[in-house]
Every structure is written in C-alpha cells, then in structure tokens.
C-alpha cells in the first residue's frame, strides 16, 4: 500500500522539510530552557545532561520549574518522570512501525518524544511514519541540544524569554500539533475538558501536575465511551 517511488520522493521531501521546521521551533524553545535552567540554579553541564539524556521537553521544564519554585531536586525528578510517562504510550504506537530490537531499539527509544510521535502519525504508510519519526526526532535532538547550549551559555542576555515572545511560541507550537488531531466532536470535547481541568487544577497543585490530571481525563474518556464503529476519532494508523 506504499506509494510509487516518484510520489514517495515528493512525500519524503515534504516530511523532512516539516521535520526541520519542528526542529527549528523546538530549538528556539530550547534556548529559553537553557537560560531558565541557569536561573533555576543548574550549571551549564547539568542543563546539557538534561537535554542529552532526559531529552523530553515537558519533563525538563517540569524539573527546573519545581527547582525554581523552591521544590526539592527529588520532587523535580518525580515530576519529570511522571510527565515522561506519556512517551511510553507513544512508544506503544510506534513499536510495530519501527520494529526494532536490542541496541537499535535503545537508540530509537531516546527519540520517542511528543514531536517525533506526532509527526509519525497520520501518514499514509509505515514508510512515511518512519521518515516522520526519525526525521523529526533527529532534527529536534540536534537543535534542542544546540538551543540548550546557546541559552545556557548566554543566560544573562536571554534570561527573560518573554522579550522575544518565546513564552507565546511554546503554546502556539502545541496548538499547531493539536489542530490536525481535532477531527471529531469527541476530540473537541476531550480537548476542551482537558484544558479546563488543567486550568482549574493550576492554583492547587505544583507546576506540571495539571498536565498529568488532564492525562487522566484522556484515559477516562478512552475507558468510558465504547468505541463506536466509524466514529472517526481513531487515526487511520490504528484503524487498519
């Protein structure tokens, strides 16, 4: 069911162009991560270790958010790991597409993040899904670490990401990732419910936790409604 070589060449070019675009956007965001790491009390080396080995933006921001708010390093680590739990669910969907064993699986696992997973979904074939995953994963890895380094080293100059509007760029990037997934009335309802619950929880729980509560809303949605035939809420990949 894969397309012809000519069509595939064009499709791959489009996928790789999008991958670099996502990489540049997240790389710019990483500049603010690097800068904020330093203001939260981390060293340049610690910020780089997080971007190289944790390499999952939400978790990294969660960790330094807890530190900056006066929380303990262990509370920060716990928040980071809980926020990273969603990557397991992405991996679940990517496993049959990537089909890897041993050390190749270990290396690919490090690239399982929001952006690479999102860019692999909604492709017409496994070939396109793999190109989206590896292209985006590698572009984001390189530019995320480059951005972290620039931000950490230049922390003094860029310690306020608000000046460049970077704090608005982050939710806009998530919006751009969400928009193509909102295809049915159910996905609209879930998105609105999750956003509302996260906002209502914000004053009462530490930063990062509202996202986990919203994740629980998503799980509850999946458990509560029996899958209706042809509901349109499941991406084509799962429908095969």
């Amino acid at each position: 069911m894969d397309s012809s070589p000519e069509v595939w060449r064009l499709e791959r070019r489009g996928i790789l162009r999008d991958s670099v675009g996502v990489g540049i956007a997240t790389g710019a965001y990483a500049i603010s991560f690097g800068a904020l790491s330093l203001t939260a009390g981390l060293s340049v080396l610690q910020a780089m270790v997080l971007s190289l080995f944790m390499f999952t933006g939400g978790s990294q921001f969660g960790l330094i958010g807890v530190l900056a708010g006066g929380g303990s390093p262990w509370a920060g680590a716990a928040t980071a790991v809980m926020l990273g739990s969603r990557n397991a669910l992405y991996g679940l969907r990517l496993a049959p597409i990537l089909d890897l064993r041993g050390w190749r699986r270990m290396l690919a696992a490090q690239l399982v993040i929001d952006e690479s997973s999102a860019m692999s979904m909604g492709r017409s074939g496994d070939r396109g899904a793999r190109a989206g995953f590896y292209g985006t994963g590698l572009a984001v890895f390189v530019l995320w670490n480059l951005g972290t380094l620039i931000g950490a080293v230049g922390a003094a100059a860029l310690s306020d990401p608000r000046v460049l509007g970077m704090d608005a760029a982050a939710p806009a990037a998530f919006l751009a990732l969400l928009a193509p997934r909102i295809r049915s009335r159910e996905s609209w309802a879930l998105a609105l419910a999750a956003a509302l619950v996260a906002l209502l929880a914000t004053p009462f729980v530490p930063p990062g936790i509202p996202i986990l509560i919203a994740a629980a809303v998503g799980v509850a949605f999946g458990l509560r409604r029996p899958p209706a035939a042809g509901s349109g809420s499941r991406p084509a990949r799962v429908a095969r």
């Binding site: 669910l89 919006l175 997934r181 999750a194 956003a195 619950v197 914000t202 919203a214 994740a215 998503g218």
Partner: peptide, 16 residues
C-alpha cells in the same frame, strides 16, 4: 487511550 492521550496532553499544555 493512546490515540486520545496526546489530545488531552496537548490541550492541557496549551491552556497552562
């Protein structure tokens, strides 16, 4: 759940 979870997470990240 795996299909719905990113929608919930992304919407919550946008809101917060």
């Amino acid at each position: 759940i795996a299909a719905l979870l990113p929608i919930a997470l992304l919407a919550a990240l946008i809101a917060t």
